[in-house]
């Protein structure tokens, strides 16, 4: 089967506390998968495990396997830097660098050794277009990214991420800090991007999950209660707890 990421029996601990319990999930290539669940259920921890951002946190421990294209990403031989090139991430709060719009997108390219100006320019334009931001910023690429609106900043962060050609894009509640119009734009963008990228999106907004994703996994207290086709999961939940959650009986 065409799985890009396969997670098996993943347990994650921060110091003594267990955050994830026996999580197993397979992510299909070039699709959008939503992770839903109440706050503190471990969904953010889960996606930060996929690009090893949790390595930055003191006291992080894990067992189980996480495979990207059949290769264990926690294998000691794996270079974290290379891994993160392949798996991009968009954060909950837009976090552009305090640099110009252009430099924000060019950053990843330069970091990966592309120095040729024309190549950078082309790629920046292409990425901004792909992120549906080009028309709004093409005349002010030298302006500081901090001057953009929240929604624009988040699309800039997406442009920055796709500029380095990742295979997978992780999105940690990318629209939770945005207004409804910006949210719609981000969702449209996710739709467009799924043809080229495998996208995993964390959201606590169930409508959003149904709108953007083909597959959905429901997290509760560090476990995956249920996962499968989004349509099926929302229409015909197999587990009582899933049903309670999607019908708004808790969380």
């Amino acid at each position: 089967m065409d799985y890009r990421i396969e997670v098996e029996d993943l347990n994650v601990y921060f110091n003594e506390a267990q955050i994830l319990k026996d999580v197993s999930l397979k992510i299909h290539k070039n699709t959008v998968t939503s992770l839903i669940g109440p706050s503190g259920c471990g969904k953010s921890t889960f996606i930060r495990t996929l690009n090893r951002m949790n390595d930055l946190i003191d006291g992080f421990k894990h067992d189980g396997t996480v495979l990207l294209d059949r290769k264990d990403i926690y294998d000691p031989k794996v270079d974290v830097v290379d891994l993160r090139k392949k798996i991009g991430m968009v954060f909950q709060k837009p976090n552009p660098f305090p640099k110009s719009i252009f430099d924000n997108v060019a950053y990843g390219l330069r970091v990966h050794g592309i120095n040729e100006n024309n190549a950078i320019k082309e790629k920046v334009e292409e990425s901004l277009k792909a992120a549906a931001l080009w028309d709004e910023v093409k005349d002010k690429l030298d302006m500081s990214a901090m001057g953009l609106s929240g929604g624009q900043q988040q699309r800039l962060c997406i442009a920055r991420t796709i500029a380095v050609n990742p295979e997978v894009i992780l999105m940690d509640e990318p629209a939770s800090a945005l207004d409804p119009i910006s949210t719609t734009k981000i969702e449209d963008l996710v739709h467009k991007l799924k043809n080229d990228y495998t996208i995993i999106i964390v959201t606590h907004n169930m409508q959003q999950a149904t709108r953007v994703s083909k597959y959905t996994a429901f997290f509760l207290n560090g476990e995956i209660v249920e996962s499968g086709l989004t349509e099926r999961l929302f229409v015909d939940p197999q587990d009582k707890r899933t049903e309670d959650y999607i019908t708004g009986r808790f969380g």
Binding site: D79, V81, V111, H112, G113, I114
Partner: peptide, 9 residues
């Protein structure tokens, strides 16, 4: 991509 010193180095 021709650098004398790689980023990892």
């Amino acid at each position: 991509m021709n650098r004398i010193i790689s980023p990892k180095m």
